[in-house]
Computed example of a mutant assay.
Amino acid sequence: MTDDKSKRDFRDRNRVAGDEEYEVGYFASKFGLSIPQVRELIARHGNDREALEREAKALGVR
């Protein structure tokens, strides 16, 4: 299901939509991860953007 572009509030900016390919792809490219790695992070830590970014940075350091 696509995002409703007529809704202009910003409630979901702090979430990563794991079912939206473009969001998962963007997140993967931003942190140099594969799409399966991003999906694993979302499954493990939820879709909170701040938590995912923190975990992605830690994953990149390893």
Rank of each mutant, 00 (worst) to 15 (best):
M1I: 13
T2C: 02
D3A: 08
D3W: 14
K5Y: 10
S6V: 04
S6G: 13
K7F: 13
R8Y: 02
R8P: 01
R8W: 03
R8E: 09
D9T: 03
D9F: 15
D9P: 01
D9V: 02
D9N: 09
F10M: 07
F10R: 14
F10K: 11
F10I: 02
R11Q: 11
R11V: 04
D12K: 13
D12F: 08
D12A: 03
D12G: 03
R13G: 01
R13I: 09
N14F: 06
R15L: 00
V16D: 01
V16P: 01
V16S: 01
A17I: 04
A17L: 03
G18M: 05
G18H: 10
G18S: 05
G18V: 05
D19H: 15
D19E: 12
D19N: 11
D19V: 06
D19S: 07
E20S: 08
E21C: 12
E21W: 11
E21T: 10
Y22L: 00
E23H: 05
E23D: 06
V24I: 14
V24L: 12
V24K: 04
G25P: 06
G25E: 14
Y26I: 00
Y26T: 00
F27I: 10
F27R: 09
F27L: 08
A28R: 15
A28Q: 15
A28F: 15
A28K: 15
A28W: 15
S29H: 12
S29Q: 15
S29D: 12
K30F: 09
K30V: 02
K30E: 09
K30I: 00
F31S: 06
F31C: 08
F31N: 10
F31T: 05
G32P: 03
G32N: 01
G32M: 03
G32I: 03
S34R: 00
I35N: 05
P36Y: 11
P36A: 13
Q37H: 03
V38F: 05
V38A: 02
V38P: 02
R39T: 08
R39N: 11
R39H: 10
E40C: 14
E40N: 15
L41R: 15
I42K: 05
I42F: 12
I42N: 04
I42A: 04
A43Y: 00
A43F: 00
A43K: 09
A43M: 02
R44I: 02
R44C: 09
R44A: 14
R44T: 14
H45A: 10
H45K: 07
H45T: 10
G46L: 02
N47S: 07
N47D: 05
D48K: 12
D48V: 06
R49Q: 06
E50T: 12
E50K: 13
A51T: 13
E53V: 06
E53W: 09
R54Q: 08
E55N: 13
A56R: 03
A56K: 05
K57W: 11
K57C: 04
K57Q: 12
A58N: 11
A58H: 12
A58Y: 11
A58F: 13
L59F: 11
G60P: 15
G60A: 10
G60F: 05
V61L: 10
V61E: 05
R62S: 01
